[in-house]
Simulated assay, not measured.
Amino acid sequence: MGTTSTDHGVQAYAWVTPATLIAIAVFAVLVIAAIIWGARLKAQRKAAEVELRDEAEAIVANTPVDDTAPTEVLVVPPPPVAPAPPPLAASETPATYEPAPVATPAPSASPSATGADDLTLLKGVGPKLAARLAELGVTRFAQVAALSSAEADALDAQLGTFRGRLTRDRWIDQAAYLAKDDRKGFEAEFGKL
């Protein structure tokens, strides 16, 4: 004998037991309780917002406005700014470095074919900085050693990203030794060449 259609219907609902029905009912009750609880919290929050708004409006409405009393204004002073330098007189021009002519070539540590010294022997001078100095007309140790304080400041101002190295690395002192080809004095003061 085969199975009848009623047997298929019974088998389709075989998973439905009293325990399953009870679990579904408990879950449904919990969901409904959560929805009701959420609705109550929302109503309480709205009531509190309305109460706060009403209190704020009442305070504003009961506060007398005194138009004659001065109001305090907090004034924050701007940050201090360095004073501008005084204007140049008609006879003054901005300082720029003009290389001093070297009367007699001094012996150099490593002269090149052009008669220029190897300025990279100065501590703190690399190839890029030596090229920048050459662009400014400084190619000899004697030129660096002979710089006055004003000329050194003017040259330093034209060094761009290398500004400050002339003083910090004591180029004038170094160049004085190298212009005289005094390697021992240089190395005693500044270290090995």
Rank of each mutant, 00 (worst) to 15 (best):
V75P: 01
P77M: 04
V125D: 00
A43C: 08
T114W: 08
A95M: 09
A25M: 08
T161A: 14
R163E: 11
R132D: 09
S91Q: 08
A90M: 09
T71K: 11
A34S: 14
D153R: 06
R40C: 09
A43S: 12
A116I: 04
D153C: 00
P83Y: 05
D66K: 10
T161N: 10
V29L: 15
T120M: 10
V29K: 06
P78R: 02
G38I: 08
P87Q: 03
R40V: 15
P78H: 03
P85D: 11
V26L: 14
V60L: 15
F162R: 03
F162E: 03
A39W: 10
P99K: 07
A43M: 08
N62I: 00
P107T: 10
R163F: 07
Q44G: 05
D153E: 10
V29I: 15
L129D: 01
A113E: 14
E57C: 04
T139Y: 02
L74W: 11
A145H: 08
V102E: 08
L119T: 00
F27N: 12
A100T: 14
L159T: 05
T139M: 02
W37F: 13
G160Q: 09
A58H: 01
L74A: 11
L147T: 01
S148C: 05
I59T: 06
G160E: 12
A157L: 07
T93A: 13
N62D: 08
A134W: 04
A157P: 03
L88D: 05
A152Y: 03
P85G: 01
G160L: 07
G137K: 02
P105N: 12
A134M: 00
A89E: 12
A33G: 13
I24C: 09
G137R: 00
A142G: 06
L30T: 10
E72P: 04
L41K: 15
A157M: 03
A134S: 13
A106R: 08
D66E: 07
R45E: 12
A39M: 10
L147G: 00
T161E: 13
V102N: 02
T63S: 04
P111V: 11
G164V: 02
L41A: 11
S108M: 03
R53V: 06
K46H: 10
A103F: 12
V73H: 09
T71D: 09
P78V: 05
G38N: 09
R132Q: 14
E57Q: 13
A145K: 08
P64T: 05
P127L: 06
K46W: 07
G137M: 04
A48Q: 11
W37H: 10
T104N: 12
P94F: 04
A130E: 06
W37Q: 14
P70S: 12
P86R: 09
T96P: 03
A82G: 07
V75R: 13
